[in-house]
Amino acid sequence: MSEAHSGRIHIAHQFESSDQQHEAGTLGIWIFLATEVMFFGGLFTGYALDRWLYYPAFAAASRILDIRLGAINTAVLLTSSFTMALSVRAAQTAKRGALALLLILTMLLGAVFLGIKGFEYYQKFVEHVVPSLDFAPQGEVLARLAPGGLGHAQLFFCFYFFMTGLHALHMIVGLGLLFVLLLRALGSEFNAGYYAPVEVTGLYWHFVDIIWIFLFPLLYLIGGRF
């Protein structure tokens, strides 16, 4: 068994060498990420446009969001990116125990992010600022949103839910991928010569992180908090 997984490299029948297979996989994921950039890009375009058109309403609405939770979540996600980067390194250096541990840590941090995000969604329901389903802000929230126009404030929350929701969906997919990766890591499938799946999943995870790096300032910081 030990000699079997010391140098076990799966080469699919269409490839000539493990190098070719590795390069194809990496190029494939980068092209997929370019696709994802354009996928989120449509939403970013719409958001940027409406923010420009209805700036007062968007600034007021963005101040409703909880900046502390946003900042904490950003730190949590960046930490998960850090542990993910270390997982790839652990796979490269064939440290199987560390790989499994780091993957579990990454998944935990991802789950914490989703938990905080879920709590923020819950807050929006409490404040009655969920577009279409429950958009009837009252009291202080209403007083802060009203000057910019409620219709356009609703538009802000549309984008807030679409963009963070799509991002959260990508997180959930990422957690699934990490889980499969963990099972394969526990089965000692990876070694210094074959760790492409860890790398590819890592690239995806970092990309989802980058999306959040932009969502955080665009949604939470935009109007200023002064």
Partner: peptide, 26 residues
């Protein structure tokens, strides 16, 4: 992907009437 996101928004707009493409809603 840009067509996908346009149709995705259309889908949400039609189901929830949230107003991204509807002038009456801003």
């Amino acid at each position: 992907p840009v067509l996908a996101i346009a149709l995705f928004l259309l889908f949400l707009e039609r189901v929830f009437q949230v107003g991204i493409f509807t002038p009456a809603l801003g």
